[in-house]
Amino acid sequence: MRIAPFWPLAAATFVIGVAATFYFNEYYFVAGYLVLQGLIMATAWNILGGFTGYVNFGSAGFFAMGAYTSVVLYTAINPPLFVVIPAAAVVCGLLGLGAGYLTLRLRGVYFAIATLAMAIVLETLMVNWEYVGGAIGAFIITEDVPFFASYNAYLFVLMLALAIGSVALARYLNFSRIGRGLAAIRDDEVAAECAGVPTLRLKLISTTVMGAMMGVAGALYPYFVTFVEPVSAFSLIVAVNAIAMPMIGGTSTWVGPVIGALLLGSVQEWTKVNISSELNLLIVGVLLVGFVALAPQGIVGLAQKFAAWTREQREKRRGDDSATA
């Protein structure tokens, strides 16, 4: 699915987002930040899970390593955020590359188990690493920034830019030669090899990009909550959301995770305030079951089916008209 004016739309979104920080109260940026964090995670997951067909259960591991990269840098030299973000991308990109080398020989459920195990191993390492606070966690003290209404508004704008960048990259991959190769791997890996698609290289590209993007999503997290400890950084909800959002939106294109993240993310933020923050996971679960059962191709798949159906009806009507005439 190609949405024609992508860049104008992205630019407009960004400008409106920045302008909004001066008009709305702080709560909306806290909620918006979390939705955008989900959006980046979902887009990243979809590059490996949706485009390539390898289900990754270890998303929280990459996310948390992005967060811990920030903690390490903060503790060591406290550099500005425009250094922290690329650093997290590099660390988690390399992590993705390494994980790819070690696990991509596995397929299907075994790959999923391996990624889940990786996240647990990383969590154990962080729990036992004194420098980043171990099990107790680490504080991060933020300072006010000029121009922006508040620090959270500033983080929201940064996250918005990162989210637009991530979606643009996923969109590029979707339509490029690389994306076509990834789709071939998803459809039939052996056939892809026979046709001359360098499957290992493409899979490594996709794990690296996925890791880097998830690291970026996690890089700002310590600044956002100002306190990081392993249990919340490696939280199950991060990993589950990263899978649920693309599944609900539709995994075969770049649009799916965007729709899924905006929808599921907003619903979660709304229930957190209006119903109960504990019900979040339950809602994700119910929605996921519903979509898997009723719309396995997600919202994008439903839309495509609907478009095909209306086209058919139109043609049928035209056929009737010409028959009567």
Partner: peptide, 24 residues
């Protein structure tokens, strides 16, 4: 280049995409 047994196309992709995949 191999034309594999049973064809092994990418069934969910279009004809053109299948051809483009041969051009890696």
């Amino acid at each position: 280049t191999l034309v594999p047994e049973g064809r092994r196309l990418f069934p969910a992709l279009t004809v053109e995409e299948n051809l483009m995949l041969g051009a890696f």
